[in-house]
Amino acid sequence: MPASITARLQGTLAAAGLGIGVAIASTMPATAQTYPTRTVEVIHAFGPGGGADRFIRAIGESFQAATGRSMIPISIQGGGGLPAAVNFMQRPATGYNLYSYSPDDVINQALGRLDLSDFRPVARIQYDQALLLVAADSPYQSIEDVIEAARAAPGDIKVAVTGAAGFDDAVIGVWNAESGAELTSIPFAAAEMVSNTLGGHIDMMFEEYGIVRGLIEAEDLRPLVVFSNERLPVLPDVPTAQELGYDVTLGRWRGIAVRRDTDDAVVQQLFELLRAASETDNYRRVEEESALQYRSEILGPDEFEAFIEQELETYTSVMRQMGYAN
């Protein structure tokens, strides 16, 4: 991808103090009529090939088809997403530096590490749903088995999650509080999470459907419960936590934010472009391949802002309950 090479070179040159021209160009403000006149960069905290990276590339392809300007993911991994957020806040508020917004940012605010009032939500685009899964030879046939066992011996059942004190942990925390069937979460790297579950080293794992689809279809992993408002059409026999009486519907969402001091007209223009991009067939196809079409409904700047406020309340109380925040 030549565009990505250019971005990399730009970053590299700027770092070496040679990209003065680039630096000057990036401080010029954009107006709605002229936006976008050059490449748009999206900062995200995950690795190449991961969910956020694929999300940006997919939207970016449609974005480019419509505007003739590329949209490029810039990955700054690790540190619970904070290095990416810090880098984003150091960039000028021109509308050419976007931020890939996710529940991890809300959790970072709940933990007192990030101030979300610096971010202006533009569009929520994807809304994923996660499952609890066990290996095919697990003694747990259904979620009822798990609840019964967990109530008899709270905390004895271990569930593999990714990330420490992050989104996965928070969902398990809400589940524990709601159901009283207490599970102990242990953070693993994504690949080890699967191998440890399949190998029987840990009782179960927590993961989004799209990622483990192949293993579910091969019947190596058995889904027990889905955290969403409705059952997944592809897994009609898997109950939602909600219908069991436990209100756990938190999902991983992906959206775009800019800096709070970005020009209003640019925010509106950007939202329109993103909405158009998310409605193209090309993007829809990618969405379906990752099984993200079930409850991904685009939210505009104001709705997204309200949604995040609500999320913040939830995560703040969970993080307190779990002893991560005070």
Binding site: G78, G79, P83, R113, A164, A165, G166, Y324
Partner: peptide, 21 residues
Amino acid sequence: GMDPLTGVARYTFGNMLLLTG
């Protein structure tokens, strides 16, 4: 960097970029 199990910052001296380790 960031404690891989609890997410607590270790020896970063308040520098968020150092959380990567």
